[in-house]
Structures are given as structure tokens and as C-alpha cells.
Design a protein around this nucleic acid. Structure first.
Lengths: 376, 376
DNA sequence: CTTTCCTATTGAATCGTTTGAAAGATGGTG
DNA sequence: CACCATCTTTCAAACGATTCAATAGGAAAG
């Protein structure tokens, strides 16, 4: 019966000791060479070469657990997403990854599916994995203030992106919602619209109120009237496409009440999509009969039919700034008083596409009349 | 000067030894109790209670590195995504997570951003983290056959989802593309369409060819003519929205060549969106003047204007089946001959929405004429 | 009285890696 | 030859948890 040369069973991987045995040097030397530690400059060039060759031949891969245990460092940043199927979150995530890529840190991504139970389970797990920092990517749904406050108890630097806690110790990075609301209404107003319908965000949501504040500020500056019949409010269920459905039904309700508005300002892009659907079903063309403006600029906004004018949140930028702040906090680790609770507000930007047009010349952005003719 | 009671510096976390010291029992006992190991039934109830209380008071969390090192198990499944901003991948990912949730395994998600370099870097990392299984979620872009073949070298059970390797040792889970192509054309044909334009997928792509095979099979069964002027092909760049842009330009080209087709079959939903945009710009209404059928059923298909009829891939199901297979392979670990290279083909399903209609009665699915009137 | 069994707990080795201190070489200097 | 400086390599102790084997007190059985 053939006995394996090594005492190791055939299932375990090649370890540092294997490389040591095979190359004739001690584990220490192997480790020093393979990590290019400072002292490795004293190791003979020939030795280095030999060790590297053997390591490669045996397909040696250092064990992350052994290493992290000894070094007391995980080299990972936890990234908690609230809903990975939300394109808003996805874009932020991409910003995070892009910015984390050139660093020594690896993102450890978990998706809480908008559920508190999962949030807590994954949080516990991230802490067990000794993440050195934590980025929480919150969409606008269901931010449980209590749960998030607990984050500070753990000594892990944390930053919240995409949403804000009114009063908390957590730093956050998000768009300037107040300014966004202001710019949104300004855009419609400057196109000549005066009869404007509004679908505002759910009232309990802090960020949503800020956005609405901006709308109100502009309205009061120019003395725009906002009749109640044309102001409705999302409820904010956590269902995935709820804002589309709500946008549709609320718009239909407003149309049936009084269809005389020439523009509609939606809380976000999905709501806008729902509104456009309702308008079309009602027989109104966008933008010819009614302009629609969204908020966020999710990737599909540009692909929609018609392409959606919207107020853009710089999502990738938000992700990369969050990373910068986390890295900064990690470096400072407790040294100077942390820039805790700091809030970064990024400027939004109006992106005009096809769904909004001047009230005077509605055809400006509309499709050209090749082939078929449309009647005036 | 006050000296800390424990020899530990204030930065390190509470460890098993801390709980042991504080509770007066040995680390062994703590571990046994906290893990509810089989022998823990011999531990006095009072002791258990006490230990649990102390652990809670000190906010003790076991260190994943220490634990995994000793147990030689990571309890993680690597999930490699090729592009997390692709809703196709995202839905599969959700299926994976949902199915993994009740198990003892945690997903370790990484996003390769369609880049080979990142794929390899993350793969190496996953191996260092000793993932016990690996799920590769491939979108239809840029699957590098070589790179994937290397996966089998590592002894980690691997399954590929969303795409297929023509000949390889890797198992895969994907939709039956041939059948999907067949059903797609069947759908349009059964609505009475005979003049159909096609945007097929990139020829080098295996999955794309299978889909096309299905189209051809149906066409030959019913003797449908497919003039060259109405058959175009995507190039398959890895740009994010390339298939939208290509769908648009290719459709425009076909329209300019001969706009007389009554239906268009697109390679996927994004291509269909592009086609719809081009049709509208050209002055043709969907579905009144031309039906459009997509493939995939991404979440936005239902929200599009008009909502998109499409051939649905059961993406969540694909994710959960992939998980099942991985768990199975992990259990069997080398025992019986693995079900290597097995390919699961899931049935696609036609979802009819607004973008396709009978050639005879185009208004069937079109918007109701409230308020404004549209001329016949 | 010895043996066996049960209960309750602990000792000590081990997982794979890193790292500060130390130990061998080698050669030059006083 | 003793001493030092400079290279080159290794020893051995961690990191935090798990687990097999062992201890020890008793009770029950033979």
C-alpha cells in the first residue's frame, strides 16, 4: 500500500510548512520572503528565487485566517447594503468598490434585504470577521434609527451613505436633498410651467422632508401656488416596486380629480415612471401634454421612453467619498477626536432629457416625424 | 497611576479568555457552552447560565479567524458576480442569498466588473478565505473560457450560473436558450406577424447562438422567411448599456433600409428598449405599428413604457438551484463521482405585456383614450 | 473492594501565519 | 585572538478558538 510522502492527508491545502519542508528553509524565511518584509533585504537573492519557485510550484496560497489571526488585521471593510436590487444602491456600491480597489482593503458585501433581522445577523457576522470599517448603504426605505445608533457601540468606524440620521454619532454622505428639491421645481418653473402636480416622498422620512423643504422654498420665492388637489404623498412601503405602483395610482387619482396640470414633479425616478405610465394610459403624451421630472438618475432613466429628465444624485461619488472618510477614520483610529457625525452634502444636478419641455413649445424634444405623420 | 486590571490593552476585543477569567471557568468550558456542543449536556445548568450571562455582559463575539482556523472550515460560499449593476445578475444574486440564508453558510460576494484582472484577484482572495464552494454568476458578456477552466484546479466545488461552457468540467445552471428562442418567435408568429425583424446576439457567444438556433428551428418549422435586410447582430461590447445603444442604432438602420416589418425580436430586454426608442423616434408606435419582444424579463421590463413583453428567465430560481447544487457537492465532497459538468436547463416562459399585439388588431393592448382623443 | 458508568470540568495540543529576538556565519579590525 | 559589524537564517512565542483526552468525584453494579 502506498503511503503518502507527507503526513498531511490529501485534502488539506499546501501550507507554509509544506513550502518550508520542500525548499529546505524555515517557515520564518518563507514568510519573510513571500511577504517582502523589510528584513527580506538580508535574504540571499538565490534563496528568494528558490523559495518563490517552490511556492509557485506547490501553488501555495497563504491562509487568510491564520494570517489575520496573527496580524490582528482583517484588511476588510464591511459594506452593508439595504437592497442590492435597488439601482440606487448598486451605483453607490460601484463607487465604493472602485475606490477601494487600489487600496489594501477588500469589501465584504452583505445585503440586508430591507429586513431588520437580516441587518442584525449580518452586522454580527461582519463584527466577527473583524472588519476594520463599516459602510452602510441605505436606500430611502426603512432606516431604523435605533438599530443604526447601536452601530457606534462597536468600535468600528462607520459611515452612512445615501441617507442621513437626523441626530446621531454616525457620519454620513449624501446628496443635498433640500437643494435638489429646489432645483427640481426651478427647472420646471423655468420651462414656463405654473400648474404643477407633486408627488412628494413619505412624510416620516427625514430625507424626503428635506427634499420637500427645497420645493417649498422655491415655490415661496417665486410665489407659486400649490393647490392641494395636486399634491400627493407616497406611503413608503418596503415593497420593491412600490414607488412605481404608487406613482401610477396617485397620478391617476390626480388626473381624475383635475387633469389640468402641465407638469409633474415626482419624488424619485421610479415614481416618475409610474406617473408617465398613468399619463399615457389617460391619453396624455409626455412631454407634449405634460412634463415629468424624476429624482436620482438611476441608469434606466436615460433608457426610458421617453428618456427621463431628472435631478441627478452623484451616486458613484457618494460611494467614493464614503470610502475616503472610512479610510481616514481608520488611520486616525482614536487618535484625534474623530470627525464623528459629520455630514457631507453633495450637490445634485438637473439632467434634462426628453420628459420635460417648455410649456410653450411642447414639441421641442419630441420624436421626429419620419415615415408616419402625426396630426397636430 | 491606574493600571488596567487585565493585561490586555484597551483596544483589543473581549476574547474567550476574558470570559473565562471573568466567569471563573476554563476557556474549554466557555467554548463548549457557547457553542452548545454535544458534551455541553454534561455542564451544570447553573454554570451555563452564568457563563452566558458573563459573555453577554462583556459583549463577547467569537473571532471568525480563530474559529475558522481551528475548525478548518470557513462556512462561506464565494459568489463571484461579473457585473453587479446588471439587473440580470442582481436577481440571480437575490435567489442565491435567499436560498443560502437558512443554511449555515454565508455568501462572500465579490464583483469582477467584467474585468479579467479583477476576476483573478478576487478569485485568489476567495481561495485564501477558504470558501467551501464557489458560485460564478456570469452575465452574457466576456466569459473567458480559459480563465473559467482554471477554476477546477482549485479543489473548490464550483457552479456557473446564467451561462454555459460548451465543454468544461464545470456544472452550470441556466435557462434553456434554444427553447427560449423558439418560444419567442412562436409568440410573435401566433400573433399573426410574418414580417419580423431580428436583432440576434453576438455570434461568438455560445448562449447567444443557442438562442438563435431556437429561432431558426421555429422559422423552419412554419416556413417563415427571414430576409437578410431584417436580421442584424449585436457586437457585444462590454460597455454597460451597449446593448441599448446597439439596439437603437441597428433598429434605425433596419428602418431606413425597409421599415415594412410589423414585429421585432430583440436579443434581450435592453436591446428591446433601444429598439422601442428607435421606433418611436422614427414615428412608429409600439405595439400599434410594430410589436417588440425582449428576452430576460429584467425588473424594468414591467415598468417600461409600454411595458415590455418578453421571454422570462427564472433568475431567482436559477440562483436557488445553483445553491442547492453547491450544497450537494460540498456534502458529497469527493465521495461519489461528482455530478461534474452537469448542465441544468430551466424552462423560459413568455410574458405578454403591452409591447406585443396581434397584427390584426393593434389597439388591443394600447392605452385607453381618456380625455384626449387619438385619431384612427 | 473493584469496576464501570455518569456527571462536570479542565489541560494541552492544534490550526497556519507572523515577528521580535537570537543565533550562526563571514570577514574585517585592533 | 578577541571583538565587532554585517549578512543570513531560524527559534519560539504568540494570535483566538476548538476538541480530544484526561481528571476527579461520586454512585451504582458486580
Amino acid at each position: 500500500m502506498a503511503i503518502p510522502k507527507e503526513g498531511k492527508n490529501s485534502f488539506s491545502r499546501t501550507t507554509l510548512a509544506d513550502v518550508a519542508r520542500e525548499s529546505g528553509f524555515s517557515p520564518s524565511t518563507i514568510s519573510i520572503v513571500l511577504n517582502e518584509a523589510p528584513i527580506s533585504k538580508y535574504v540571499a537573492a538565490k534563496t528568494k528565487e528558490h523559495i518563490r519557485a517552490v511556492a509557485k510550484r506547490l501553488d501555495y496560497r497563504p491562509d487568510a485566517f491564520g494570517r489575520s489571526l496573527r496580524k490582528r488585521r482583517s484588511h476588510t471593510i464591511g459594506v452593508m447594503i439595504f437592497d442590492i436590487s435597488d439601482p440606487f444602491c448598486t451605483l453607490i456600491l460601484q463607487g465604493i468598490e472602485k475606490h477601494l480597489h487600489p487600496t489594501e482593503f477588500l469589501p465584504f458585501i452583505v445585503d440586508a434585504h430591507n429586513q431588520r433581522e437580516q441587518f442584525e445577523r449580518y452586522l454580527a457576522m461582519l463584527l466577527e470577521y473583524r472588519v476594520e470599517g463599516l459602510i452602510v448603504v441605505a436606500n430611502w426605505l426603512f432606516i431604523d434609527i435605533e438599530t443604526l445608533s447601536e452601530l457606534e457601540r462597536h468600535r468600528v468606524p462607520t459611515v452612512l451613505v445615501g441617507s442621513e440620521m437626523r441626530s446621531g454619532p454616525l457620519g454620513s454622505v449624501l446628496v443635498n436633498n433640500e437643494q435638489g428639491g429646489y432645483l427640481a421645481l426651478q427647472h420646471l418653473y423655468s420651462l414656463g410651467h405654473r400648474k404643477i402636480a407633486f408627488i412628494r416622498g413619505p412624510r416620516p422620512l427625514w430625507d424626503s422632508s428635506r427634499r420637500w423643504d427645497g420645493v417649498l422654498r422655491f415655490a415661496s420665492e417665486v410665489g407659486l401656488k400649490m393647490p392641494k388637489k395636486w399634491v400627493v404623498e407616497l406611503t413608503g412601503s418596503s415593497e420593491s416596486n412600490s414607488s412605481f405602483d404608487e406613482g401610477r395610482t396617485l397620478t391617476r387619482a390626480m388626473l381624475e380629480r383635475d387633469p389640468d396640470f402641465t407638469a409633474l414633479l415626482a419624488f424619485d425616478d421610479l415614481t416618475a415612471f409610474g406617473a408617465i405610465r398613468a399619463l399615457r394610459t389617460f391619453g396624455r403624451r409626455v412631454p407634449d401634454d405634460c412634463s415629468v421630472l424624476g429624482f436620482d438618475d438611476v441608469p434606466y432613466a436615460a433608457l426610458y421612453n421617453p428618456s427621463l429628465s431628472t435631478v441627478r444624485q452623484p451616486m458613484e461619488k457618494m460611494g467614493s467619498i464614503a470610502v475616503e472618510r472610512i479610510l481616514h477614520e481608520i488611520q486616525q483610529a482614536g487618535e484625534i477626536a474623530r470627525s464623528k457625525g459629520r455630514v457631507d452634502l453633495l450637490p445634485p444636478e438637473v439632467v434634462q432629457r426628453e420628459s420635460t419641455a417648455s410649456v410653450g413649445q411642447p414639441g421641442k424634444n419630441s420624436p421626429k416625424n419620419h415615415g408616419k405623420k402625426r396630426l397636430p
